[in-house]
Nucleic acid binder design. Structure first.
Lengths: 261, 261
DNA sequence: AACAACGGTTCAAATAATGAACCGGACATA
DNA sequence: TATGTCCGGTTCATTATTTGAACCGTTGTT
C-alpha cells in the first residue's frame, strides 16, 4: 500500500465519537509507527486536512475538507438531490429514514431525516460507517453486488453486536440471493436490540447498486400495517432518488416493486 | 515535498469551473509526471477521494470528502455558526456578504449570502480561493498577520486582474499598516471592475486573524450612506461571528469598531 | 523518586516513488 | 487512407523517500 493511502486512512479514524485524537492513539489504531504517523499528519496539516488543537496537541479534521465537499456537492449533488425524498419518507412513515452509499468499500451514511409524530425514535448519526452484516442497508447493498465482491466487502470477522447478529460469513452470504429476489432487506435487533430495519437498494446509470435507502423503526411500532406502509413509501423514495441521481433500475426490479406499492 | 502533499495538491486543481479533469491536464497543471499523477489518483480513488467518470475517464472529487466535511462541521461548526450573522448582514445591507478563512496559506470562501432588495448583485461562488492582493478580504487578512507571514502569503507575482489591481508586492505591503490601524479594508474595482469591497477581520481565541467577513457592492450603489450602513452592519456581524467561533478581538480593535458603529 | 505515557525527533536500512519511453486507441487533418 | 497528435494508461531501472527502533524532554501518577 502506498504512502498516500496510509495518510488517507488516518482520516478514517476520526468519527463523531472521536473527533479528536492524539498522535499515539492514531498510530495505535492505524497500526503504523508513531514517527510515520507524525510525518503523515504534518503533511496533511500543511494542506489543511487536519489541524492540531490546544495544549494537548490533539489532531482533528481541518477546514480544507469543507471546500472539497462543497465542490463535490456542486458537481454531483448527491445529498441535496436526495434529501427531499428522504424527508418525505420520514414524514410519511413517521420514522427515521436514512440514506447510505458505498464509498471505497464501506457503507457511508449520507443523510437522514426524522419523522415528527413520535417522541421515541431510532437515532442516527451522520457521516458514520454502517456494518454490512448487521443492518438492512448493508444487507441489501451486498445482495445487489456481484457475488465475489459481496464476500470481499463483507470480510471475515463479523462482530456480534447483539444476540441476533449473524456471525458466520458463509451463512450470511447464502441469504443474499433471497434478499435480491425480494428486492428489499429486513432486519430486527441485529444492529441494536429492538430496532427494526427495512432497506431498498439504489442504483447508478449502469444499474450497479451503489447505496440504499432505509427506514429504522422501534420494533414495538412495527406491525403488518406499518410494514406495508413503510415498504410502499420506500419504493416511492427509492424510485425518486434513483431518478434524481440519474440511475437506472435493473430489469425486473421495477415490476417487483410495483407489486409492493 | 512529500508524496502525500503532492497528492493533496492535486485535489486543489478541482474548482467550480473545472469540476472534472483529465489525467494529462492534471499532470500539466500540477507540474508532475503523468505516471506519478496516475498513481496518486489511483490511490485517492481507492479511498473515495476522487472518482472517474464516463467514457472520457475524467477525474472528479469523490464521495469520501462528504463524510469528512460532515465530521468537521460536527466537531467545529464554523460554517453553521456563522451563517445566521452572514445572512443578516446580507439582508441589512441589501448586498452580497461573504465569509472566508485562511486554510493552508490561502483564503478559502466558507459561505456567502445575498440580499433580497436588488436584482443586480455581486455574484459569489462557494469553495473558491480569493486572491490576497485584489480583494478587501485578502487585504484585511494580510494586514492582521505578522509582517513576514503577510509577505510570504502574498507571494511574488500579483496577477493584474483589472486596471486598478496592485501588482507590486512591496508597495502593496506598505499599505497594510494603514489598514490595520483602520480596522477594515476597502477596495474598488481591484478584483473585477465596478465591484466595491469592504472587509473586516475575524480572530481566533489567541487573537490571531484567521479570516474575514466582507460585503461586495456594485460600485454604483456605494455612496457615503450605504458605506456607513455597511460598516456598521459588518462590525456587528464580525463581533457575532468572532463570539460564535470562540475568538478574541485583539486589544484596541473593539473600541475602534465601536466608534464606527 | 520511580514510572509510564505523551508528543516529537533521529538516522541507517529498507522500500516505495519516480519519469522517460512506450502502447493502443480516438480523433482530426490532408 | 495515411499521417500526426493527443489521450489514458503501463513499464521498469534508477533514484529518492519512507520507515521504525531507539531516543529526548515533558507531564501526570503512583
Amino acid at each position: 500500500m502506498g504512502t498516500v493511502s496510509k495518510a488517507l486512512e488516518l482520516l478514517d479514524l476520526f468519527t463523531q465519537r472521536q473527533p479528536q485524537l492524539g498522535l499515539s492513539q492514531i498510530a495505535r489504531e492505524a497500526g503504523l509507527n508513531k514517527a510515520t504517523c507524525h510525518r503523515l499528519l504534518q503533511e496533511m496539516e500543511g494542506a489543511g486536512f487536519v489541524e492540531q488543537t490546544g495544549p494537548a496537541r490533539e489532531y482533528r479534521l481541518g477546514p480544507a475538507v469543507l471546500r472539497l465537499a462543497a465542490l463535490r456537492e456542486a458537481a454531483v449533488p448527491t445529498q441535496a438531490a436526495a434529501m427531499p425524498a428522504l424527508r418525505s419518507l420520514a414524514e410519511v412513515t413517521g420514522e427515521t429514514a436514512h440514506l447510505s452509499r458505498l464509498v471505497a468499500g464501506r457503507l457511508q451514511t449520507i443523510g437522514f431525516a426524522y419523522g415528527t409524530q413520535h417522541s421515541m425514535m431510532v437515532r442516527m448519526e451522520d457521516a458514520d460507517f454502517l456494518p454490512f452484516h448487521a443492518t438492512a442497508s448493508g444487507m441489501v447493498v451486498l445482495a445487489f453486488q456481484p457475488d465475489s465482491l459481496a464476500a470481499q466487502l463483507l470480510g471475515a470477522a463479523l462482530p456480534q453486536l447483539t444476540q441476533s447478529t449473524a456471525t458466520d460469513p458463509a451463512a450470511f452470504l447464502s441469504r443474499l440471493p433471497a434478499i435480491r429476489a425480494r428486492g428489499h432487506a429486513e432486519t430486527e435487533s441485529t444492529f441494536e436490540p429492538e430496532v427494526h430495519g427495512l432497506a431498498l437498494p439504489l442504483f447508478d446509470a449502469n444499474s450497479a447498486c451503489l447505496g440504499s435507502i432505509a427506514v429504522a423503526t422501534p420494533a414495538a411500532r412495527m406491525g403488518p400495517d406499518q410494514r406495508q406502509k413503510t415498504l410502499a413509501a420506500l419504493v416511492k423514495a427509492a424510485a425518486e432518488i434513483t431518478r434524481a441521481w440519474g440511475g437506472q433500475l435493473p430489469p425486473g426490479l421495477e415490476t417487483l416493486w410495483r407489486d409492493v406499492a
